[in-house]
Write a protein that binds this DNA or RNA. Structure first.
Lengths: 235, 235
DNA sequence: CGCACTATTGAGTGCTGTCAAGAACTGTGG
DNA sequence: CCACAGTTCTTGACAGCACTCAATAGTGCG
């Protein structure tokens, strides 16, 4: 499996974003024996389900995922979107059981990090990288929370877009081009508003030429004004 | 410092909630050499400030803390409240710098866990406990996010109270008696609503005998109906 | 090409934010 | 113990924004 000359980590395009960040030859090979890449998943496939034993967390290699919780009444809450280099599934460590479910938003791959290898990660030297991933995840959660406290829908959406933009930049991608493989319904749900409100605001922002909205891609034309909107200084 | 016969971990009333969970004699002593208890802090004292180097995270021993972010316009966002056995300060690991500030809500103490000792925690055998703390923190963040997506103020408050209740239960305390050392303003801020709205809902819940609200303590009289309210089935 | 699903657009109600005033609480000093 | 000042909390009136309901338009897929 890993006896070939080039490990899956060495050939991974996401290696500068994940646990492999800053690692060299031997360390990369050692890491490759710890984490396991999954087969490509397709839209709607489950990475894990709420209730599954949480014996591992995951780092996105390609594509995107959403995590969500379904309550006793069948209401779905989208708790997060995950892009390459981002870690998910860690909240399950609290009770040893995943408390949310995760599905692929399009064709996507991950690396599976089993809970048992976490101590090994420190000896390999990728402990700090793990902390960075966990920290970024934590930070994202904080930003989402702060964003949700904004009452005005347009400010929430503006901040959501700018947050996505920052994550694209961190990935080394064009920060003005935001892939949105999730549905509008998912975005609205995640932002705590109705599909209608989201649709209206997107239409308004498009008319004002602040963004160009396509089905699976939103382009930022004026991040400056979007930022002003996010801070609801004016409109 | 730790040459006495009983380590600060062995004598700590919070030891079954924190990193010490499940550890015995020798392990406890080893842990006590890794983590450092802080001197009692008083209301308003800073545990860390946004911008400080994030070389450690903290576990609450007693009292309570709040974390918050202040943006460029001076707006404050309360990102979380922390009770005994809960971990805070981990989001700073993303960039090596704390992105939020933390202050004591009343007289409070913590244990400081330096980032350098994290590998040692695994060898002591408290790795799983660390994961549990991190997982619980993650889970709390998720719950907060879900809660903030609820549009109705009374549902948000009901869920907030029930969440606090669960945390009290986890601490081994009476789940019906919720210490609220934070101000109403802080709670309102954290829940993404105005002080006035919070005040009105609390008054309404009190009149309906669902809760008994005092300045620094809220008592739940009917968790059942509060849960129904949280799910906004009826009113 | 037609169907199902998703997204957009339109009108009306209700809840929460805003502004404003008053009440209760906290701590200090006499 | 009481009086006082500052803060924190409560209560009231009004307006704006987002939700609800409803219909139309667009998109993807067989």
């Amino acid at each position: 499996m890993n006896g070939t000359s080039v490990s899956h980590c060495e050939s991974c395009p996401t290696r500068h974003l994940c646990l492999a960040e800053g690692l060299e030859g031997e360390q990369l090979q050692a890491l490759a024996t710890c984490v396991r890449p999954c087969a490509p998943m397709h839209k709607g496939d489950y990475l894990f389900r709420a209730g599954d034993p949480a014996d591992a967390c995951f780092v996105v290699r390609s594509g995107a995922f959403k995590t969500f919780v379904v309550n006793e009444f069948g209401d779905e809450y989208i708790t997060g979107f995950y892009y390459p280099g981002e870690i998910l599934g860690t909240s399950g460590f609290a009770a040893g059981v995943h408390d949310e479910s995760a599905t692929a938003l399009d064709t996507a791959t991950t690396c599976r990090v089993r809970i048992e290898v976490l101590p090994d990660l420190w000896s390999i030297g990728t402990g700090p990288a793990l902390l960075r991933l966990l920290g970024r995840h934590d930070r994202q959660a904080t930003e989402d929370r702060i964003n949700l406290t904004r009452t005005r829908a347009d400010a929430r959406i503006a901040r959501f877009l700018l947050n996505l933009s920052g994550r694209m930049k961190h990935q080394g991608r064009d920060p003005a081009v935001l892939p949105t493989p999730m549905s509008r319904t998912d975005i609205a749900n995640h932002l705590g508003m109705t599909l209608e409100s989201l649709s209206r605001v997107i239409a308004r922002l498009s008319r004002a030429r602040l963004i160009t909205a396509a089905r699976t891609e939103i382009t930022l034309n004026d991040a400056e004004r979007l930022h002003a909107l996010a801070c609801q200084l004016d409109d």
